[in-house]
Amino acid sequence: MTSPHGSSAPLARFAPEVGAAFERFRAAGDRAALLLVVTAIVESFVPTPRDGGPVPVVTPEKALVDDLGFDSIAIAEAVFLFEDLFGVSIGNKDLAGLRTVRDLCEYVERRAGALRASS
């Protein structure tokens, strides 16, 4: 089950510093730590380019679909992990507005911040 505070369990298969960054964000709303977490998650879902070219580097401005090559299932997978991790539910309407890595960070900050305030 998801909890309003989220849980770092979904990061069990990531490098330890990602889990540590998640804890810093959860404890103090550390924005740089959030960017590190979101970047690591997005990186873990970036598809291998079909043309055999290099895997694109994830930066805040990159668009998931247009720049990083995400397909609809990769987006659903990433969103599923974000939902588990941050204890939020991301509906289709919200999802349509999340284009870049930065959009994701700002969305999570807004939603998770609201949850922290209300809990």
Binding site: R13, S44, F45, P47, T48, D71, I73, A74, E77
Partner: peptide, 20 residues
């Protein structure tokens, strides 16, 4: 969890194939 799976190194399975 597919990320836990192990198979002989000579087979290269990209994550986007492995996931499904």
């Amino acid at each position: 969890h597919p990320r836990d799976w192990r198979w002989p190194e000579r087979y290269s399975i990209p994550r986007e194939t492995l996931r499904a």
